[in-house]
Simulated assay, not measured.
Amino acid sequence: MLDDTDRRILRQLQSTPEARAAEIAERAGVTPATYGRRIERLRVAGILRGVRGVIDWQALGYAVEVSLRVTLDKTQPRAFDAFIEAARAVPEVLEIQTFLGQVDARLSVIARDMAHYQQLYRDRLLTLPHIADIEALMHVARVKGRETLPL
């Protein structure tokens, strides 16, 4: 599906997404016109979903990150749908993942400090629908965090 030219373009785009298209094309060894056609083809194929700004939430005053492992009451019809819909409405929930197994969902949550997290936990997170059990895992350090793929 991807040839060597596509891989070179994607590697350059991942390494410096803020660069101008002409710069990325030059580093990938293609003309700007070829770069444009390839990027459009990758978008249409659903391989390249977009280029986005990544914001350092800690620089904005959020110092606490918590992962919540949630088990839902699956005896309730549409428990997953109701839970996910409500969790999406909490701005401090950065990520929602669902699983098969004992844990049904994982929420990645940020807060300004422990007092903010405690208020958020009591007022917004514990009130999410259909929670049977919840376990909080406080992040200590991010040892590895990448968004780039080995192309």
Rank of each mutant, 00 (worst) to 15 (best):
R146E: 15
D133G: 03
T148F: 00
D123P: 01
D56M: 03
L48F: 00
L128H: 02
T5S: 03
R52I: 14
G36A: 15
V109C: 03
V51G: 07
V90K: 04
E18Y: 12
A141W: 07
P32Y: 06
L149M: 09
L128A: 07
V109R: 00
Y35H: 02
V143P: 00
K74R: 15
E40G: 02
R106E: 15
R124P: 04
F83T: 07
A21W: 10
D81V: 14
A132P: 01
K144L: 08
L48I: 03
L42N: 08
A136F: 05
D56G: 07
T16H: 09
A115F: 15
Q14R: 03
D56Y: 07
D4P: 00
A136E: 13
A141M: 09
P91K: 00
P150D: 11
M114A: 15
G53W: 12
R69I: 04
G61I: 09
S15R: 11
V64K: 05
R41C: 01
P129N: 07
R7G: 03
E40R: 13
V93K: 01
R78S: 12
E40T: 12
A86W: 01
V109I: 09
D104C: 03
I55F: 08
R41P: 02
T98V: 13
A87E: 04
V143T: 12
L120T: 08
E95L: 14
E26K: 06
A79T: 08
R124K: 11
Y62K: 06
F99E: 10
D6A: 05
G101V: 12
R69H: 14
V140I: 10
R69F: 11
I39W: 00
D81F: 12
V30T: 13
L2V: 06
R38S: 04
